[in-house]
């Protein structure tokens, strides 16, 4: 593994807190990027990425130095983002009737921010559109697509990060690509 990183990690473990700053600045770009793509919101991405680094710092003694440090960091960050996505999901039942209405359930309240009308999509800038399409992917596919195509990581490393078998990673990449293909339609 990267000797410089290992050296910094040892320094931190020995109590030299400031050595951690080097580690943060080396990986901030990747972690922040992953968080942003997963969460689709700049403020939240910054907060999540910071939290990931803090978590990594607190649990640094559990990191196995024989393995790749970036894999370990990515794992902390993706788990954190997946947790946040789950927490954001509404915990009410969609079938439940909206209070004060008759026969109006939650489905009727939902559609608005889920799908944008065609003309609005066309007005979107490319970068905005990319993030929009990523955020429409189910979380399972979103994580692998981001790690594969934005972070450009090998499938084996994605399998290590997400702690799922290589075959499952492949299947999710395939389904993710198909899902995007359907989303994009005629682009």
């Amino acid at each position: 593994m990267d000797p410089l990183i290992n050296k910094r990690i040892k320094q931190v473990l020995k109590g030299d807190q400031s050595a951690y700053a080097d580690i943060v600045s080396l990986y901030q770009q990747s972690l922040h990027q992953v968080c942003y793509r997963m969460l689709g919101n700049k403020e939240e991405a910054e907060d999540a990425a910071q939290e990931a680094f803090i978590k990594a710092y607190i649990h640094l003694h559990t990191y196995d130095q024989k393995r790749k440090f970036s894999t370990w960091l990515y794992r902390i960050a993706t788990n954190l983002c997946i947790d946040r996505i789950r927490k954001k999901k509404p915990d009410y039942y969609l079938d439940a009737e909206v209070p004060g209405t008759e026969g109006l359930d939650m489905y009727s309240q939902l559609a608005v921010d889920e799908l944008l009308p065609e003309e609005e999509l066309e007005r979107m800038e490319l970068q905005e559109r990319i993030q929009y399409e990523i955020s429409r992917l189910p979380d399972k596919y979103r994580a692998v697509i981001i790690l594969k195509y934005i972070e450009e990581l090998p499938l084996q490393e994605i399998s290590d990060i997400l702690d799922i078998p290589l075959g499952t990673v492949k299947t999710r990449v395939h389904r993710g690509r198909e899902a995007l293909r359907k989303q994009l339609g005629d682009l």
Partner: peptide, 25 residues
């Protein structure tokens, strides 16, 4: 699809990110 996703531009890290992390640890 692949080309589309790959054309995502890198998002720049907010200023003072490292300092903020170091303050929070």
């Amino acid at each position: 699809v692949v080309a589309f996703i790959k054309s995502a531009a890198a998002i720049s890290v907010p200023a003072g990110f490292t300092t903020n992390v170091m303050h929070r640890i």
